[in-house]
Write a protein that binds this DNA or RNA. Structure first.
Lengths: 161, 161
DNA sequence: GTGATATACTTGACTACGCAAGTAACTGTA
DNA sequence: TACAGTTACTTGCGTAGTCAAGTATATCAC
């Protein structure tokens, strides 16, 4: 009905953006309900545990975790509050800088992460490999990595021992 | 420190997923603060106005809007509550089905959408075209469209008259 | 028609954030 | 050594969304 201006050139940019939003919403929902039900973790809980487990010395400054998860510092405080309440993470202080408080996995945290990893990784792989060839996955990963802050995703595949 | 299992095959699936999450967070944040400040709309407000404006007869069932935006019905109720309170959207009833209530743009809603479109579309294009060639954008769009529910993004480029 | 089931939508209670402001500690400059 | 500025983190408050439950209407089987 209403007249529309369809600028063909670079109209794809907007499409791509929308698909990014919707794809994120749908995949997150698909994966997080499973993670939630089976292991009581949100996607960010899981990612936080994973990042901490992979960090040098197995500890991570809250600030660095915020960057890795693309959260604000307050978001991280609350995220870790929850994980601490569940006994999966503990605070540790830094000897050289009294401002920083490290997050460390407890044995329970390591255990939970390991359990959750099995099914979560399998689900992620299933979700993507049923839609893309290896080559396409490679391409998609490379392209998404150029988005602001998406580059630091690096090798998140590891399953902590 | 901890031993890690790096399954090279399809490890990219997980990487891609993470980049999707982080890329979404970062691009949304970048674009929505501008939209918020300059036009008082969130990304979803904007998308809702756009979808309604593009629908046949300029009206849309709430259920269909939910699907298009990948929100739950209650999410749509609240989203539209806000837009109604701002006078950008109105309810209309359906003569053939008393359960459905349509969302229609008010003149103010059309005006706001049109104003917001200018800068928003420009920002989206800038954000993406500074990172990708036309060809890459095409590829990225095609790949993202395969994700669950991301396919219905279609030609969102239109600026309502 | 009448009851079972499905659909469209709303509401209350909750969660996961963000933002702004605050505290404490560190750093660099004079 | 004192003070300005920065950094790490927390807290109060607000918001956007979910889920579960509820209401009203429609549809289908018989």
């Amino acid at each position: 009905m209403s007249s529309q201006i369809l600028t063909t050139q670079s109209s794809t940019a907007v499409e791509v953006f929308i698909r990014l939003l919707r794809g994120h919403a749908a995949t997150t929902r698909a994966l997080s309900s499973e993670l939630q039900e089976e292991h009581g973790l949100t996607i960010n809980d899981y990612e936080a545990l994973l990042r901490i487990s992979r960090a040098d010395e197995g500890t991570m400054r809250r600030v660095d975790l915020a960057k890795a998860l693309v959260l604000t510092p307050s978001g991280v405080t609350r995220l870790l509050d929850g994980l601490e309440r569940c006994g999966l993470v503990e605070k540790a202080s830094c000897s050289s800088d009294a401002r920083v408080s490290y997050a460390v996995l407890t044995p329970a945290g390591k255990k939970r992460l390991k359990e959750a990893s099995r099914s979560h990784l399998a689900s992620v792989r299933a979700l993507f490999t049923e839609r893309y060839t290896d080559e396409e996955l490679e391409t998609l990963g490379e392209l998404l990595a150029r988005l602001p802050d998406a580059g630091r995703a690096d090798e998140s595949e590891c399953v902590p021992e």
